[in-house]
Simulated scan of single mutants.
Amino acid sequence: MRKAVIQLENLSCPSCMQKIENAVKGLNGIDQESVKILFNASKVRLDFDSDSVAINDIEKAIEDLGYPVVKSKVKSA
């Protein structure tokens, strides 16, 4: 498993958090329990299996909702 912190542009509403959380949890290889949306910091934290899903796929799922990704950091868990 790898840990990711994805920095987004400022989130403006709590419903944004729910949309992002649902999109990310819908991807294969995501540890469902690890997904955290940090509203005030505009960050997404999660653990994922890099054999099942790439960080680019996670970023694309978020960007497809209309939330630009500023940068991502990935670390081995």
Score class of each variant (00 low, 15 high):
L11W: 05
S12H: 15
K43D: 07
I62K: 05
K36M: 01
I30D: 01
D51H: 07
N10T: 14
D64P: 02
S76M: 07
C16M: 09
L27H: 05
M1T: 10
A41W: 12
A23Q: 05
M1C: 07
K73I: 15
G26D: 13
A77R: 10
K73P: 08
S50F: 05
D31Q: 03
A4R: 06
Y67E: 02
C16D: 07
N22L: 08
N40R: 12
N28A: 08
F39N: 04
I30G: 01
V69Q: 02
L8H: 06
V70K: 14
Q7A: 14
N40I: 10
E33A: 14
E59M: 11
Q7P: 05
V53I: 03
I55G: 03
C16A: 08
I37S: 01
K3A: 11
K43L: 09
K60E: 06
V74H: 04
V70I: 15
L27M: 11
F48H: 08
I62S: 06
A77K: 08
N40V: 13
V44D: 04
L11H: 05
D49G: 13
I62T: 06
G29E: 00
V35Y: 00
V69L: 04
D57H: 11
D57E: 15
N40K: 14
S72Q: 11
A77Q: 11
L11A: 09
C13Y: 07
A61E: 01
D31V: 03
L27A: 05
I37M: 03
V24P: 13
S15K: 13
M17S: 15
K71N: 15
I58N: 03
R2T: 12
D57Q: 14
N10W: 13
K19Y: 12
N28Y: 03
K3H: 08
Q7T: 13
M17Y: 13
V5D: 06
A61D: 01
L11V: 09
E59P: 09
C16S: 10
D31E: 03
E21S: 12
F48E: 09
G26T: 13
E63F: 11
K43S: 05
F39D: 03
M1V: 11
K71T: 15
R45T: 15
I55M: 05
S50N: 12
L46R: 03
I20S: 00
L46N: 02
M1R: 10
V35H: 00
I30R: 00
K71R: 15
S34A: 04
G26S: 12
K60R: 06
I55A: 04
